[in-house]
């Protein structure tokens, strides 16, 4: 079986949260004497899991999991597996029903609270998610993924300081974090200089990644840190085989700052970069359009 805890919880996609009126936080769901409408739905879902599904991948997964669950009906891990299968296919009710069964059988099952929290977050219950994540972290305080997910729950609840703390923690735990995590952290920091500093920390760790440099440049430019922004553009341009776009951007920044002569030089350098391209690239429509614009801008600058 796959390594537990992946799938829904592991996604990096920033898709909008789905809100469901039937899925609200409940407890004691399998106390059948006190069934809420949601519990009824979940209990029914769990009882109906063998019903054929439309999606072949779910069918294949169930074909493997259902017999195992029948053979060992008290193995909580199997319900977690089945819940994650459903979660991967956005079947939230079936996913939750299976998680609840797993929780009944083994409340401290590794990965279960993270999966339940991820599901709660996904369906728009960040507060409930936070509770699951707290329990998951109590069981495994080195679970970077759960810190990242709890940071997102906290963002949804408006707790930016808590979110930032979680993300910092996660970034310390991951040896080589993806750039998206540094971008996510920078977005939590209000002061532009501090946000840039956080991005530079990311650059120091994983290299001058384009997306980090670009975000830092945007922050520097909007904060009026012109020389820093220009230096940043130089780094970005150095990574690109075609420098004209970034040289033009340099000209734009300088022009906006009223540094006309320097802007003209930058536009000229951009034009020279285009002219040094092989003919088949120089003559491409994009390059030709840019060259025309650069000529116009140079004229205006002068």
């Amino acid at each position: 079986m796959p390594r537990r805890g992946f799938g829904l919880a592991g996604t990096l996609c920033n898709v909008p949260l789905v809100r469901s009126s039937i899925l609200r936080p409940v407890s004691g769901c399998f106390d059948f004497a006190h069934l809420t409408p949601r519990c009824t739905a979940l209990a029914c879902a769990l009882m109906c899991v063998t019903v054929a599904r439309a999606h072949p991948e779910i069918e294949n997964g169930l074909a493997e999991l259902n017999p195992r669950i029948e053979a060992t009906p008290n193995d909580a891990a199997q319900y977690l597996d089945r819940g994650e299968l459903y979660a991967r296919h956005a079947d939230w009710i079936q996913a939750e029903a299976n998680y609840l069964r797993a929780a009944e059988l083994s409340p401290r099952l590794p990965g279960l609270d993270r999966a339940r929290g991820a599901l709660a977050l996904r369906i728009g219950n960040p507060r409930e998610a936070g509770g699951h994540f707290a329990r998951a972290l109590a069981l495994d305080p080195r679970d970077a993924e759960t810190f990242i997910l709890r940071n997102r729950a906290r963002v949804a609840l408006g707790d930016r300081a808590g979110a930032l703390a979680d993300l910092q923690h996660a970034l310390r735990l991951i040896e080589s974090p993806r750039p998206e995590l540094f971008l996510e952290r920078a977005a939590l920091i209000a002061a532009a200089r501090d946000a840039v500093r956080s991005l530079d920390d990311g650059i120091a760790r994983i290299g001058p990644v384009h997306t980090l440099q670009l975000r830092a440049f945007q922050l520097e430019e909007s904060a009026g840190l012109i020389d820093a922004a220009l230096a940043r553009l130089s780094v970005i341009a150095a990574q690109s085989e075609r420098k004209e776009i970034w040289l033009k951007r340099r000209g734009d920044v300088l022009m906006h700052a009223g540094r006309i002569a320097e802007a003209r030089a930058a536009y000229g350098a951009a034009l020279a970069a285009i002219n040094s391209l092989p003919a088949w690239l120089r003559e491409s429509p994009d390059s030709a359009t840019l060259a025309t614009e650069l000529a116009r801008l140079s004229g205006r600058a002068s």
């Binding site: 390594r3 992946f6 799938g7 990242i148 997910l149 974090p177 995590l181 290299g207």
Partner: peptide, 22 residues
């Protein structure tokens, strides 16, 4: 993706392949 974790860029897929992130 069932055995890989994109959030932390870990798991089997990321362990097996050495791809040019830089």
């Amino acid at each position: 993706g069932k055995s890989a974790n994109s959030i932390t860029e870990s798991g089997v897929y990321y362990d097996i392949f050495t791809l040019p992130k830089r």
